[in-house]
Design a protein around this nucleic acid. Sequence first.
DNA 1: CACTTGACCTGTCCGC
DNA 2: TGCGGACAGGTCAAGT
Length: 287
Amino acid sequence: MPELPEVETVRRGLATLIVGKKVVHESHDWPKSFPNTKADVEQFLIGANITAINRRAKVLLIELSSGYTLVTHLKMTGQIVFRGDAVFGAGHPNDSLIGELPDKSTRVTIDFSDGSHLYFNDQRKFGWMKLYPTLEVPEIDFMKRVGPEPLEDDFTAKDFSVRFTRRKNTSIKAALLDQTVVAGVGNIYADESLWGAQIDPRRKVGDVSGSEFERLYEELRYVMNLAIEKGGSTDKNYVDAEGKRGSYMDFARVFRREKQLCPRCGAIITKIKHAGRGTHVCENCQT
DNA sequence: CACTTGACCTGTCCGC
DNA sequence: TGCGGACAGGTCAAGT
């Protein structure tokens, strides 16, 4: 599920909902979802206050007053949902995907001193939360290797195209999905931005021209900014920190629109398998 | 090193 | 209705 816009949406929600709260209890039923020892939890999580919520690529960083950070990756089906006294989203089926919590997919529960709760749900169990000393977070392998944030103001089209030179023999889609090239791009926004730039996802990086890279840069930033504005994309599982769906899928031009008409040229959109992923393309106007 | 494929999991959908 | 297989938004470890 979550790519950069979804994780950013969760981050913004959590920043208003849980910063300042004090953790009093944690429980989990699947060790891989929260691999720290009980002693670490006691020492660095219980009794700590939430001081800030940050994001790098698709990783959520929940900072604690203990000097530790709860590093969180939602992978494919992770959800982080806050519940206070009110049940957010209940009775609004178009707005919320989930009801009572904890539910069947709840892997981790964190309780706050004011009686509110944070739930980490993850149907497929690929995601995880893990405590790291805050100062060591930049030393985590993934953090050292991940590429630049594509939405930063000082990230230019030139910076973007230069990142791809190392991968000139692979396809443009495989390179876009490579987190060491650029941070935060996943299957939805790869397909959407390539459609916007009118580039066939199977093209070799080495055959993509400078002006095409400029278009792709603009389109990637456009779709990701739009997706953040729309609260992300809910295809199946994704919800924000209040349990609400995102609406970008209503604006998608190719993703999950196979057999429908291309909004640009009217040809039929096809779905193929490429780079090990379902890939949506208009074979008529993406060349 | 660059590149590709399989593994990690559960749930759903599709064809027989 | 049941059953097998393919597939799902991500990343790593292995393999070539």
